[in-house]
Write a protein that binds this DNA or RNA. Structure first.
Length: 327
DNA sequence: AAAGAGGACTCGA
DNA sequence: TCGAGTCCTCTTT
């Protein structure tokens, strides 16, 4: 994984744009150190729809947040490009639909898809970085569960990341629960210098924890078999995801992804990729490989033949594969 | 033309 | 070392 320090700061800035209050965003921006890899000012043109309430964001399934944004700005292309600065232009998702001269209907679809892509990347990065921090600090992701020691660790970590003055003493003897109950004003009273920044960052952690909870609660309505399968859902485990797991994830969410991948025979584990380009794009997003395409994805699937994970069904059909061990 | 198969190589964890 | 990404050639649909 990339340097968690830089990565967290980047993701946090964007994460706050979609999940955290506008105030938090403003505070984070105001207090960001000069070491930040890019200047948010440039990416801040009005994209009203992106300032979702935490509630709206957390109600959605998985990390793909479908947002209806009637006036999404092409300026969105800026964060997208910046989140993926690698020099792989060949298949970077097209964000700027205006320049593409798409028809109005297509334009809307493209914008929505692009927003989904940006948001899913952002949220994924935020969650990943929080998970990294948790591992490093040996704390749980949910601030509500922190004891006073955990709170101090988190404070030290955040202060270190954002070069904030040390404020640990001001929050001494407070548990995570206490912290979560505090308003921004109370944070500021305890630490006039960086209370607002700390409050904003805690906001992000709270949102992520809430989202994680929804992620696990949301699975309870599915069947036992699906539950077993969902254990491999990397969006909840933090482990690097395998392609077969990812495909399963998509298949378990027909409501979201049924148009690009669906079961032909669930019992036998036979599925069809309906939109190869879309599935490849989603996989590329998940793995942060903007140049991903179906050619490469299918090569990876074919590697599973030897391993006995996926095979072609007895009656081979285009874009149809079969899990060797369906649950 | 798109999909499928698989070799060969690279890369990062 | 392994899983995946990339590039490639050739075959099949």
């Amino acid at each position: 994984m990339s340097n968690p320090v830089g990565s967290l700061s980047e993701a946090t800035v964007y994460g706050s744009r979609i999940g955290i209050t506008e105030d938090s965003l403003a505070i984070l921006e105001r207090n960001r150190g000069s070491s930040e890899p890019w200047d948010l000012e440039e990416t801040k043109p009005s994209v009203p729809g992106l300032y979702l309430s935490c509630f709206d964001m957390l109600l959605t399934e998985d990390a793909t947040y479908v947002v209806k944004v009637s006036d999404a700005s092409p300026a969105l292309a800026v964060p997208m490009t910046r989140m993926e600065p690698r020099d792989e232009p060949e298949q970077c998702p097209v964000i700027d639909s205006q320049e593409q001269g798409l028809s109005p209907g297509l334009e809307g679809q493209e914008e929505e898809r692009s927003l989904e892509q940006v948001q899913s990347m952002v949220v994924g990065e935020v969650l990943k970085d929080i998970e990294t921090a948790c591992k490093l600090l040996n704390i749980t992701p949910d601030p509500m569960e922190w004891n006073t020691g955990n709170v101090q660790k988190w404070l030290l970590w955040t202060e270190h990341l954002y070069r904030l003055p040390h404020a640990g003493k001001a929050f001494q003897d407070l548990t995570g629960k206490d912290l979560c109950a505090m308003s921004e004003e109370e944070f500021r009273q305890r630490s006039p210098q960086c209370g607002d920044t700390l409050h904003a960052h805690l906001d992000i952690w709270k949102s992520a924890a809430w989202m994680k909870e929804r992620c696990s609660v949301g699975e309870t309505k599915i069947t036992v078999a699906e539950e077993l399968w969902s254990e491999a859902d990397s969006s909840c485990s933090g482990q690097p995801i395998h392609l077969w797991q990812f495909l399963r994830e998509l298949l378990l969410k027909p409501h979201n992804y049924g148009r690009c991948i669906r079961w032909l025979n669930k019992d036998k584990g036979i599925f069809k990729i309906e939109d190869s380009a879309h599935v490849a794009r989603l996989w590329g997003l998940r793995k942060n490989r903007p140049a991903m395409n179906y050619d490469k994805l299918s090569r990876s699937i074919r590697q599973y033949y030897k391993k006995g994970i996926i095979r072609k069904p007895d009656v081979s059909q285009r874009l149809v594969y079969q899990f060797v061990h369906p649950v």
